[in-house]
Design a protein around this nucleic acid. Structure first.
Length: 566
RNA sequence: GCACUCAUAGCUCAGCUGGAUAGAGCAUCGGUUUGCGGUACCGACGGUCGGGAGUUCGAAUCUCUCUGAGUGUACCA
């Protein structure tokens, strides 16, 4: 339900009748319940342009607003705010219409786009660590959300599978004589360290490693085979993490760095021929505007850099994938890099002018003391271990709550533990750094996954207890029911905002408001207690059921599961 | 040095394409016909929105400046 769009049309019509021209009508949520459901604040600005008294023309415009359907009443307040109340019957009708809808009333975008979402991007030489967490889950949520709203999404996992360290790794792999799936590769971090030790202690090994780098780049079959088996094994580890995290990335989404190898020379050619790059100190560089420091696209030894690969990828995404929008879900510290690369790509026409290039940056994960998140001895925290710990901790918090079989307990702990980690991350505005806290994320209180999951389970419990068919319509009987029905219908507007701005925390904030409101409603409006009229009871059951559906759908978009019992 | 980001309640955070008396959660204190799942709900306390100046009917939000913190700064990704 696109409520704001409909309201802006209603206001536009009123302005037309009043013979006032306005380009964009922005409807806001009312800042307080006393001010109605929505408000239109644009009259002051319009009045200024018309050089008229804002209150007077607001009153005049109000008299033209259609109050026969959606809108129940309007009111002019303060210097010229127009406050809008929606009609109870209209809300009830809309809510009833989506009771059986799998999309809980969410429509599709009017103009679907082809969107590339580049996220996760682990390095194949290393085990996935907490640094990959945010990219993976924010990116996955964005991809899922856009897809749900009707865009065509192309996921791209730009894995780091190329570079000098791979010579060392495959030389070591060969020496260990593993096929890439054995114990030796279980812990990539350790494998890398061992290889490094070997590299430092043996001159012969070091030479071989260097030789192998040249050989892979030259297309040597033996070395490429070793490299491929290493990449496969490493990717296998990533897939385990994706599985645990409930992140939808498959091998089909992998478009590795190495994929662009044969396009890099062309990138340089293009830049040269268009006069965008110049040679400086032996390296091929692009000087942007007044910046003193250039972007090096080709080293003096002929090698390419990550800016070159990113340009090739941008070119590919525009010219081959035909993307309308390209989103890079990458650490905020790379803002400058993307700004430069985007600018070069547009200038060189590697990406059409109309394509939207967006760096979806995010902040760093911190520990309690506000320093980057590390293990006690200062190492990086492995993602697998973090997720396993989350499940163990989740189990601890719920084990005495309800009767569960061991299997149920495991499933519930998994849903709650993983959900807690993801929700904690997604609920913070993505550009700021965030402080990681087990206690906070696994709390039943506040804006946490568990609070949402608990609310869902509570509603399921009510429905189980009712244990009969629910028939009849939602009828709005009081202020709380009015607000709850409206909140449920606001789901689409919320998702739209989150999709445009690429802000998952918009969704968590909404879910939290919804659940808080439901708890209030539930506290004040008994559902199954004695003495409730059948019609009222059914209406409240429907509201409860619909609330559960929206919670479940919202969490599903975030890649978080719900459970019937906690 | 230059560039970018951030600064909101004791703590963790919303709000930022200018709108009405700046909102939550935690913590603290108090309350709720023994409760349809009370790990809930209600209330109280708590703010010079880092300082200062400007733009205007109106600024946490836009501009400038200062302070403090962080990040990035040509052949790593």
């Amino acid at each position: 339900m696109k409520i704001k769009l409909q309201l802006s049309q209603i206001i536009t019509n009123a302005l037309l009748i009043a013979n006032i021209q306005a380009d964009e009508i922005v409807i806001s949520d009312a800042s307080k319940p006393e001010f109605g459901d929505y408000q239109f604040n644009g009259m002051m600005k319009l009045a200024k342009e018309l050089k008229q008294n804002p209150r007077e023309i607001a009153v005049m415009v109000c008299s033209h607003i259609d109050i026969t359907g959606m809108v129940a009443k309007v009111e002019v307040a303060g210097p010229g705010f127009i406050n809008i109340w929606l009609n109870d019957a209209w809300l009830a009708t809309q809510a009833n219409a989506i009771l059986e809808d799998k999309r809980v009333g969410v429509g599709y975008v009017e103009q679907p786009q082809k969107v590339v979402v580049d996220y996760s991007g682990p390095n194949m030489a290393k085990q996935m660590h907490v640094g990959h967490l945010r990219s993976s889950i924010i990116g996955d949520t964005l991809a899922t959300l856009l897809e749900f709203l009707g865009d065509e999404v192309i996921r791209q996992n730009h894995i780091g599978d190329w570079g000098t360290q791979f010579g060392m790794l495959i030389a070591y792999l060969e020496e260990q004589n593993t096929d890439g799936n054995t114990q030796e590769l279980k812990d990539l971090e350790q494998f890398y360290k061992d290889a490094k030790v070997r590299f430092d202690e043996s001159e012969a090994f070091a030479n071989k490693a260097r030789e192998y780098v040249v050989k892979i780049q030259g297309g040597d079959e033996h070395c490429l085979m070793l490299w491929q088996s290493f990449i496969n094994a490493s990717l296998g580890h990533c897939e385990e993490v994706y599985e645990k995290l409930n992140v939808n990335l498959t091998r089909n989404d992998v478009r590795a760095e190495s994929f662009y190898n044969d396009q890099l020379a062309q990138v340089i050619e293009t830049l040269k021929s268009k006069g965008i790059s110049t040679t400086s100190n032996g390296a091929e560089c692009v000087f942007i505007d007044g910046a003193e420091i250039p972007i090096v696209v080709q080293k003096s030894d002929g090698g390419f850099l990550y800016a070159t690969t990113d340009l090739a990828a941008l070119n590919f995404r525009d010219k081959v994938l035909n993307a309308d929008r390209i989103c890079y879900v990458v650490d905020a510290r790379q803002a400058q890099h993307f700004k430069q690369v985007f600018s070069i790509a547009k200038q060189a026409d590697m990406v059409g002018a109309e394509v939207s290039l967006e760096h979806i940056g995010f902040g760093t994960m911190m520990d309690k003391s506000g320093k980057p998140f590390k293990t006690r001895d200062g190492g990086t925290v492995k993602l697998v271990e973090l997720l396993d710990e989350a499940v163990v901790r989740a189990k601890e918090t719920i084990k005495d709550r309800d009767v569960h079989s061991n299997e149920e307990l495991d499933a519930v702990a998994k849903a709650i533990g993983i959900g807690a980690v993801k929700y904690a991350d997604l609920s913070i505005s993505r550009e700021s750094n965030y402080i990681f806290s087990w206690d906070k994320m696994l709390s039943f209180e506040g804006n946490t996954a568990l609070y949402m999951q608990y609310a869902y389970a509570r509603i399921q419990s009510i429905l189980r207890k009712h244990d009969a068919q629910i028939f009849g319509d939602i009828v709005i009987g009081d202020e709380l029911e009015h607000r709850l029905a409206l909140m449920l219908l606001k789901f689409e507007d919320t998702l739209t905002k989150a999709a445009i701005e690429a802000t998952p925390h918009t969704i968590t904030g909404y879910l939290y408001d919804l659940v808080t409101l439901f708890m209030k409603f539930y506290e004040q409006n008994p559902i199954l207690k004695g003495g409730i009229e059948e019609e009222v009871k059914m209406s409240r059951l429907q509201l409860a059921k619909l609330t559960a559906s929206v919670i479940a759908k919202g969490l599903e978009l975030l890649g978080i599961k719900v459970v019937d019992k906690i």
